[in-house]
Amino acid sequence: MAIDLTDSFEVIDERFRKLAFGNVHLERLYTGCRWAEGPAWFAAGRYLVWSDIPNDRMLRWDETDGSVSVFRQPAMNSNGHTVDREGRLVSCEHRGRCVSRTEHDGTRTVLAERFEGKRFNSPNDVVVKSDGSIWFSDPSYGIDSDYEGDAAPSELGACCVYRIAPDLRGVTRVADDFVQPNGLAFSPDERLLYIVDTGATHRDDGPRHIRRFRVKEDGASLAGGEVFAECGNGLFDGLRSDVHGNIWTSAGDGVHCYAADGTLIGKVLVPEAVANVCFGGPKRNRLFICGTTSLYSVYLNTRGAGRGMR
């Protein structure tokens, strides 16, 4: 017998029913942002950190009591975040034009701010691979205006994807054929890297899709890059993979779920355009959703890949 799902879900392919629960609704946990982005789950503390970019602050939601507080302000117009293998916050800073790390004692360390002597545009989203390397996108959004950063010309003249070596001693460019590279996510086995291109924000005929790359045997470079999925509502932005290889990606009407074969199988419907998502909670089966002005969550019948960091 087919499961009747609540109006928080839209089933497009029957495979999606196995990923949702019949009695679960989307929950709004907080509202009051201008552009919510970059959620990152801290398992040890049972809390979530996310960005409110135009308000130049980072917020903290506590799972133990549902409270929200300011984690950091000013916050260098930080955008995407992740948690590294040692439980430290890794952040993409628009205004700092760098990738930084918050140490366990609260101090800030700049991990990368230049490539070949030139400043980055405005690092946007970031993932940490199991070998400790850090992969991030560098579109121009943070230097396009003063709303989410500081308006400035691009020193690099291109928007690309980069990798910071595990020992932090080198930065390499791993993909350079993007208009505006955005969200990133590894597959569960880290053999694939999915990268969003939101180039439609800057070109009428620009891309609004996810591309899929193969991670080469060296673990440090990419091959391929075919289009995995085209966005049918708004733009893709941030995305995550679950343990089954499904891709959960933000879109204009909520979160779209794609099977590993590229089929759109279902949606989590959200009343605001979604910017980014991450898995969290003790079992990594709670999807946290940054939707424009608000933070939402929904429980799913799947778990985030890795340790909830991607």
Rank of each mutant, 00 (worst) to 15 (best):
H202T: 13
R212A: 15
H104M: 11
T172C: 01
N79C: 07
I195T: 04
V70Y: 08
Y194A: 00
N246L: 10
V49R: 06
G232N: 13
D197I: 07
R108M: 14
N182K: 03
R95I: 01
E116R: 15
A152G: 06
L287G: 04
E10C: 04
H256M: 03
S100C: 14
Y258T: 02
R208E: 00
R97D: 03
F136K: 08
I210H: 01
N79A: 01
T293R: 15
G149K: 12
K18S: 15
P188D: 09
N233S: 13
L269V: 14
T82D: 02
S67P: 04
G234C: 12
A260S: 15
I289Q: 08
Y147E: 14
P74Q: 12
V11F: 09
Y141H: 13
D253M: 01
V110Q: 10
L168Y: 13
C33K: 02
G291E: 10
R240Y: 00
H81M: 14
L222G: 05
H104N: 08
P123K: 04
A165I: 04
L300I: 09
C33W: 06
F21Y: 14
L29G: 07
K283V: 02
G183E: 02
D65C: 11
V270G: 08
W248T: 04
D177M: 05
E148V: 15
G219W: 08
L235V: 05
P188T: 12
L300T: 10
D253E: 14
D189R: 11
M1I: 08
C257I: 07
S91E: 12
D125K: 09
N301M: 00
A20C: 15
Y299C: 12
